[in-house]
Computed example of a mutant assay.
Amino acid sequence: MSDIDFTTASADELAAVEPGDFIRIVKQMSDKDVKQVMESANRQPIIEAIFSRMPELFRADRAGTTTATTHWSVTGRPDGGADEWTVRFADGSCTTLPGHDGDATLSLAMSPVDFTKVITKSGNPVMMFMTGKIKAKGDLGLAANIANFFDIPKA
């Protein structure tokens, strides 16, 4: 796939970007470029595409018997709010839904730039937590291992 301009692409075009292509494109972007995209009208469809792909990238063999509800907050929305999602692990599967649903085993909050670093594995989540870039409450052991539950394509 050729590179796509995340700022001007349609929601359908964004949804069609394969995870490996998404990661490759994002890793080529500067933090300033990522911030600009995440302040554009395409922020919502990009975040929705990321969370909706999580179940297909989930590796039950790596999660083992983990049962957990995680609440994600991607801060820095243009209106001052955050995009909130729930990601659940249970019975060898992963499900996602918009909003915070149920009691969280782990709550994570981060800026859009840090969120893209976490989901593309281009940042160290433990170091990001230690330096205050990621706010985590609850099961910190889960926070340290959650990225391993997903088969993140190499860029």
Score class of each variant (00 low, 15 high):
residue 1 M to T: 14
residue 1 M to V: 14
residue 1 M to W: 08
residue 3 D to W: 11
residue 4 I to M: 10
residue 4 I to N: 07
residue 4 I to E: 04
residue 8 T to S: 11
residue 9 A to G: 06
residue 9 A to R: 03
residue 9 A to H: 03
residue 10 S to A: 09
residue 10 S to H: 09
residue 10 S to L: 06
residue 13 E to K: 10
residue 13 E to T: 11
residue 15 A to L: 03
residue 16 A to E: 09
residue 16 A to K: 05
residue 17 V to L: 01
residue 18 E to A: 15
residue 19 P to Q: 10
residue 20 G to Y: 01
residue 24 R to E: 14
residue 24 R to P: 08
residue 27 K to A: 08
residue 27 K to R: 15
residue 27 K to W: 00
residue 28 Q to Y: 00
residue 28 Q to T: 11
residue 30 S to G: 06
residue 31 D to Q: 04
residue 31 D to V: 01
residue 32 K to N: 01
residue 32 K to G: 01
residue 32 K to P: 00
residue 34 V to W: 00
residue 36 Q to M: 01
residue 37 V to R: 05
residue 37 V to E: 02
residue 38 M to W: 05
residue 38 M to R: 08
residue 39 E to F: 08
residue 40 S to Q: 12
residue 40 S to W: 08
residue 40 S to L: 10
residue 43 R to F: 08
residue 43 R to D: 11
residue 45 P to V: 07
residue 48 E to R: 13
residue 49 A to I: 03
residue 55 P to K: 12
residue 56 E to S: 14
residue 57 L to M: 14
residue 57 L to T: 10
residue 58 F to I: 09
residue 58 F to W: 08
residue 58 F to D: 08
residue 58 F to K: 08
residue 62 R to W: 03
residue 64 G to R: 09
residue 65 T to P: 00
residue 66 T to F: 00
residue 69 T to V: 15
residue 73 S to K: 13
residue 75 T to H: 04
residue 75 T to I: 08
residue 76 G to F: 13
residue 78 P to A: 14
residue 80 G to D: 13
residue 81 G to Y: 09
residue 81 G to L: 07
residue 83 D to Q: 10
residue 86 T to P: 09
residue 87 V to Q: 11
residue 88 R to D: 04
residue 90 A to V: 09
residue 91 D to E: 14
residue 92 G to M: 10
residue 94 C to L: 05
residue 94 C to H: 08
residue 94 C to W: 03
residue 96 T to E: 09
residue 97 L to Y: 00
residue 97 L to T: 14
residue 98 P to E: 13
residue 99 G to S: 08
residue 99 G to F: 07
residue 101 D to R: 12
residue 103 D to L: 13
residue 103 D to M: 12
residue 104 A to T: 13
residue 106 L to G: 06
residue 106 L to F: 05
residue 107 S to Y: 06
residue 107 S to D: 14
residue 108 L to V: 12
residue 109 A to G: 08
residue 110 M to D: 01
residue 112 P to V: 06
residue 112 P to T: 10
residue 113 V to W: 02
residue 114 D to K: 05
residue 115 F to Q: 06
residue 118 V to E: 00
residue 118 V to D: 01
residue 118 V to C: 05
residue 121 K to E: 06
residue 121 K to L: 11
residue 123 G to K: 12
residue 125 P to W: 07
residue 126 V to F: 09
residue 127 M to H: 04
residue 127 M to C: 01
residue 127 M to F: 07
residue 128 M to I: 01
residue 128 M to H: 07
residue 131 T to R: 10
residue 133 K to L: 00
residue 133 K to V: 00
residue 135 K to Y: 00
residue 135 K to V: 01
residue 136 A to G: 13
residue 137 K to V: 07
residue 137 K to N: 13
residue 139 D to E: 04
residue 141 G to E: 03
residue 144 A to D: 07
residue 144 A to V: 05
residue 148 N to M: 07
residue 151 D to P: 04
residue 151 D to I: 03
residue 152 I to V: 15
residue 154 K to G: 11
residue 154 K to T: 13
residue 154 K to V: 11
